[in-house]
Design a protein around this nucleic acid. Sequence first.
DNA 1: GTACTGGTGTGGTCTGACCACAGAGCCTAC
DNA 2: GTAGGCTCTGTGGTCAGACCACACCAGTAC
Lengths: 248, 248
Amino acid sequence: MTVEERRAWEIVLARIEDDLLGGRLKPGDRLPGERALAAELGVGRSSVREALRVLEVLGLVRTNVGSGPTAGAIIVALPGGGMSVLMRLQVAAQGFPVADIVKTRLVLETAVAAELAEAVLSDALLHPDRRGHDLGPCLQLLDAMDSQDLSEDEFLALDAAFHLSLAEACGNQVVIATMAGLRNAIEGYVLAGVARLASWPTTSTRLRAEHRGILAAIEAADPAEAHALVHAHISGYYAETRLHPVAH
Amino acid sequence: MTVEERRAWEIVLARIEDDLLGGRLKPGDRLPGERALAAELGVGRSSVREALRVLEVLGLVRTNVGSGPTAGAIIVALPGGGMSVLMRLQVAAQGFPVADIVKTRLVLETAVAAELAEAVLSDALLHPDRRGHDLGPCLQLLDAMDSQDLSEDEFLALDAAFHLSLAEACGNQVVIATMAGLRNAIEGYVLAGVARLASWPTTSTRLRAEHRGILAAIEAADPAEAHALVHAHISGYYAETRLHPVAH
DNA sequence: GTACTGGTGTGGTCTGACCACAGAGCCTAC
DNA sequence: GTAGGCTCTGTGGTCAGACCACACCAGTAC
């Protein structure tokens, strides 16, 4: 049997992936207990645990101790966590240069803004009842950021949430998870960069205004303007904090 | 100690991440043995193994049995593997809709093509000696795809390699890994989609021509054209295989 | 010099045991 | 009859120990 060639934990991982692809496992389902799974696959419980650990970090299962219907390993699909860990560690291990993280964020976020503006345009023209693209959460976050008694950390947390809310309004799960991961990976660098700013009040005021401008461009159904504003917003901030000299 | 609150394997993971961030671990370094690490951190060896398993899947370490300088867990930074597993499993668990995968690929790949074209433009004008942006591998893959005795699988493998080679020419590690993951995640769907094509020879001929056109637009330093051609190439193919109705 | 052969340390795996936890059901006190 | 507390059971979390296959390395026999 070729399946015996692999390491034991890979057998477990492959089995669960196969069950997912075959529809035998869906989000919300409970996996068999670790002991039962080990017996069923003919491997040790420690091997099962290694596979479950991988699935947990990747955001595929959530484990709960105890008893009852909520206990055990439950299939979820929360890509954000796994993506964040992956990117954060790759940055730490120097596999992902920070400059590349920023560039990628630039690409994704400008595309998101442009797509949102296009969606506003097409929704307004064709089908006003079409599914969400709800910009409400974005606006709420901007309002929250107008509060004057925010610490730098709190402001940056809201800033991250706003940028993510744009992706969420777009609805693309892959982009949402990726952007969350990108932001998480360089969070430490962002916080460190604030210290290099000439004036935090000046910068935060400018950021607030730029956010409003981006949202306005989206609501005005102007994809090109939204794209340009997001590009200027992100590259300008990183250039200012000297986190990374954004090229061209 | 708050550190004691976490689960044992998280302590190990946090320790290694901290060593990476602190520069005490770099790519190429060897980790202490599992037994030594367990003793040092005051956890069981199985907990250390769970953490190492996660790091291995995430593409951060490579483990080797035996003895000598190559044995043990060695820090690497190969984001592609981890990204592929993550995205493949998220697709399997329905956390990543295939449509979103395709849309994201569209965004990244059009941006890559446009950036390459811009790089050709700026290199030609300003600094012809600037770092690579070597399109040679891309061209070699296109030549290889011209062979008439390729199976569908072989052709698609070269196709995937070509698209990835564009990202590699761009040099953005994050984009390279993400695109590899995206492609890997929907590889099964791509293969299945071939069966729904009206005529494989017709389609493959068209794909060859489109690839040449994309590369020509890049070498002609025409970002807008490269962007448009890539968009048409990808969305057209997916529409043809009915893998996914690309919107707008 | 060469070929073999044992020693040594590595990850890979399994087994068994114990713990904390949370629900389920029973059992008592009122 | 009901409310409260109880034990019982099964879960994941963890650890310790053992064995294996493997790969290198040094010593040995030739």
